[in-house]
Computed example of a mutant assay.
Amino acid sequence: MPSIRLAIVGLGKIARDQHLGAIEATQGIDLVAVASRNAALDGIACFPDIHTLLASGVEVDAVSLCTPPQGRFEQARAALLAGKHVMLEKPPGATIAEVFALEALAQKQGVSLFATWHSRESAAVEPARKLLSERKVRSVEVEWKEDVRHWHPGQAWIWEPGGLGVFDPGINALSIVTRIMPESFHLVSSELSFPANRAAPIAADLTFESAGGIKVSAAFDWRQTGPQTWDIRVETDEGPVVLTHGGSRLIVDGKAQIVEEDREYRNLYGRFVELVGSGRSDTDFSPLVHVADAFMLGRRNVVESFED
Rank of each mutant, 00 (worst) to 15 (best):
R5L: 10
L6R: 09
L6I: 00
I8L: 15
L11S: 02
R16L: 03
Q18Y: 14
Q18M: 12
Q18V: 12
G21L: 04
A22E: 11
A22S: 10
T26Y: 04
I29E: 11
I29P: 10
A35H: 11
N38S: 15
A40F: 14
L41F: 03
D42W: 01
G43N: 05
A45V: 07
I50Q: 14
S56T: 02
C66T: 12
C66F: 00
C66R: 11
T67P: 00
P68D: 14
P69Y: 01
R72S: 10
E74G: 04
A76K: 15
A79E: 06
L81T: 14
A82Q: 07
A82H: 05
G83Q: 09
H85A: 09
K90D: 13
K90W: 08
A97R: 01
V99Q: 02
F100A: 12
A101S: 10
L105G: 09
A106D: 05
G110A: 02
A115S: 14
T116Q: 06
T116W: 00
W117V: 04
H118I: 04
E121C: 02
S122Y: 05
A123N: 13
A123K: 05
E126G: 06
E126M: 10
A128E: 01
R129G: 05
R135E: 04
K136M: 05
V140R: 04
E141I: 08
V142I: 15
K145M: 13
Q155P: 00
Q155K: 08
W157I: 08
W159T: 12
W159Y: 05
W159F: 13
P161C: 06
G162Q: 03
L164Q: 09
L164D: 04
L164W: 15
V166C: 14
P169C: 10
S175C: 02
I176H: 08
T178L: 02
M181F: 02
V188D: 10
S190C: 12
E191T: 13
E191I: 06
E191V: 09
L192F: 03
P195G: 11
A196T: 07
A199W: 02
A200V: 04
P201D: 05
I202G: 14
L206C: 06
E209V: 14
G212T: 06
G213P: 13
D221K: 01
W222T: 10
R223I: 03
T229N: 01
W230E: 15
D231L: 13
I232L: 07
R233H: 14
V234W: 04
D237H: 03
D237K: 02
P240M: 05
L243Y: 05
G247D: 03
L250S: 01
V252Y: 01
V252Q: 07
D253F: 03
G254L: 11
G254F: 06
G254R: 12
G254C: 03
K255S: 11
Q257W: 09
E261F: 11
N267K: 08
L268I: 14
F272Q: 03
F272M: 05
L275P: 07
V276I: 15
G277N: 10
G277I: 00
S278F: 06
S278V: 07
S281R: 06
D282A: 10
P287N: 02
V291Y: 11
D293M: 08
A294K: 07
R300D: 09
S305K: 11
S305L: 01
F306P: 08
E307M: 07
